[in-house]
Design a protein around this nucleic acid. Sequence first.
DNA 1: TTGTACGCGTTATCAT
DNA 2: ATGATAACGCGTACAA
Lengths: 325, 325
Amino acid sequence: MDINTIATMAGVSRATVSRYLNDGYVSEEKAERIAEVIRQTGYVPSRQAQTLRTGKTDVVGVIIPKINSASIARTVAGLSEVLNGAGYQILLANTSNVAKTEVDYLRLFSRTGSVDGIILSATMLTHKHIAALESLTVPYVILGQRLEGHRCVFYDDYHAERDITLLALRSGERPAFIGVTDEEAAAGHASHQGFLADCQERGIEPLAEEQADFSIESGYLACERLLEDHPDVDTIVCATDRIAAGAVVCLREYGHRIPEDVQVTGLGDSDLAKVVSPTLTTVNHHYKSSGAEAARMLLDGLGKVQDSAQQVCMTYELYARNSTR
Amino acid sequence: MDINTIATMAGVSRATVSRYLNDGYVSEEKAERIAEVIRQTGYVPSRQAQTLRTGKTDVVGVIIPKINSASIARTVAGLSEVLNGAGYQILLANTSNVAKTEVDYLRLFSRTGSVDGIILSATMLTHKHIAALESLTVPYVILGQRLEGHRCVFYDDYHAERDITLLALRSGERPAFIGVTDEEAAAGHASHQGFLADCQERGIEPLAEEQADFSIESGYLACERLLEDHPDVDTIVCATDRIAAGAVVCLREYGHRIPEDVQVTGLGDSDLAKVVSPTLTTVNHHYKSSGAEAARMLLDGLGKVQDSAQQVCMTYELYARNSTR
DNA sequence: TTGTACGCGTTATCAT
DNA sequence: ATGATAACGCGTACAA
C-alpha cells in the first residue's frame, strides 16, 4: 500500500499523488479521484520514507534523568502540551540519573538524525555534556540548568532558598540544612549556597549540613542524624519537598512540635507540601510552565516561532504555610 | 557522511561496509581499514534509512492518559527500564485524558509504521479503542485494563477495594464512598463495585457515593459535601490516594479526628499515603512492576522473548496504617 | 497541470 | 570474501 498503488488505482502518476498530499497543486478532477482511492484504501504515507527524503522527523528527543519524579512529570506535561500542539511527537529518553547515559543519548539522537530537536533536562552539566551539546547538528534547549550562550530554561534555586531561609531565620536561631549532592548545580549547589548566604549575612553559624538523596526516606534519616547530633536545632531548611516531608514525619515521630519547636521548609511545591501536617512552607517552581517555555524555545530554534528569549530564568512564588512560625 | 563515503575512503564497496556493520562477514584486513575510517569520521548509520530498508524502528510507542500522575510515572519507569534494556526507545504519546486522542495515536503509530510495538495505558476501552487495536499491524499490550483475548496487564481494583473496605467495616458502620467516574473501568467502576459488594454483604446501606476527579482538591471538596449531607459518616473509602489525601486534609480542618471519628482509606500507595497525617491505609499496586511486565509481554510479541503470559493480573498489598481503626 | 527520472542511505540478493 | 545492483517509499527538479 504505497504511493504507487494509489497512483495506479487513481489513474495518475505518483508525482500527482504526492502533490495532492503536499502542495495540493492538482486539478479538481484528479484530486477527487485520488481522494476517493485514499479513502477506500486508508492509505497513509510512510513516515520513514518521508523522513529519509525530507530530513524532517517531526520528533523531538527529550532526555530526562528520571520519569518517576513529580517535578519532572510536571515539566514533561508542559513540554508535551506545546510540542504536540505544534505537531511534534516526543521521543523520551530516561537516563535513570546516569550522567554518561545522558551524553550517549545526546549523541544517539543527533548523529542518527532521528530527531529534529532535543530538550535536555540535566541535573548536572559536565564538560562532556557541553562538548556533546556543542557538536549537535540539531537545535536544543537545556532545561533546569543555566549555560551561558546556549538556549536554556532554569530555576533560580539560589534566590528561592535565600527567600525561604530569610523567612525561617526571622524566628529561627539554630538552623540546619538538608540538601542533595553539590554536584547537582540547581537543587544541590545553588540552594545550598542560598542557605549559607543568608546565614552568613545574619552572622549565624549553621548547626549542620546533612546530605540526602531525593527520597522521602533519606529526608527522614538525615533528620534523624540531625536530631541526634544537634537536639537543639530549631530550623531545618531542606532542598526539596520530599526531603522536607521526610523530615516532618521524623520530627513528629520524635515528638517535636512543628513549627513551635522546629521549623521546616521545602522547595518545589509538590503535592506533598499541601498534604503533610503541618502544611509545608515552600517555593512553587512553575515546573509545567518551564516545560512549555523550553518547548517554545525549541520551536524557535526549529524555525516554527520567532519570539522566544534565549535564556529564561523561571520566576517562583514563596508559599508561607504552617511549617514555619 | 554516508556509507558510500566510508566505503570509498576504505577502498571497499559499500556492501562490504554494510556487512562489516551487520553480519561481520568481512576479512580481517578490510575490517580494520573500515574500522579505522569509521573511527576517524565518527560515522553512524542513518536510522531512517535502516528503518526504511528493514522495516524495524527499534521504537515502542507508549500511549498514556497523562504524564503528570504518580502512578503513571512509576509505570513508565518500569516500561522504560525493560524496553531500554532490550534496545528499544520510547515514543511517548500523552493524550491528556482525551479518549479520541488515544484512538488517533493508535492509528498514527500503526499506519505510518513508525513504531515496532505499542503499549496502551488507557483509562477506558471504548468500542473504537477495540476496533483500532484489532486493526493494528504491530504487537501491542494494554496496560491498566482487562480485555479478553488481548495481551494485557491490569490491576485488581475490585478485590483491592473489597479488602480495604472489609478492613474498614470491621469498626465502621456508616460508610461512604468517594470515587471517580464509572466510565473508568478500573479505578472507577471496579473499585466502586468492590465497595458496594462489601457493604451489601454486611447488609449496610452506604450513606453516600460522591464523585471526584483525580485531584487532591476534588477529594477535599467531595469530603466537604459528604460532611454537610451526612455529618455522622464514620468511614470514607476513596478510590485513589489523592482523593483520600484531600479528604484527610478536609476532615482535619473541620476538626474531625482520624481514625477515632472517621476512618479514611486510599488506593495506590503513593508518596502521599506515607506522609499525610495520619498515614493512610491503602493498597500498593506495584505500578512499576506492571510497566515492566507489560514491556516483557510486548517483547514477547516482538519475538524477543518467549516466556510471558498473555494476561497478567497484578497482585497488590494491603497496608493497614493509621487512618483506620 | 502533469509525468519522467533521480536520489535520500541502507540492506539483501546474486553472481563472482 | 567481495562487489554490482536492486529494492525500500517518498519528494521534487525538470521538462513537457
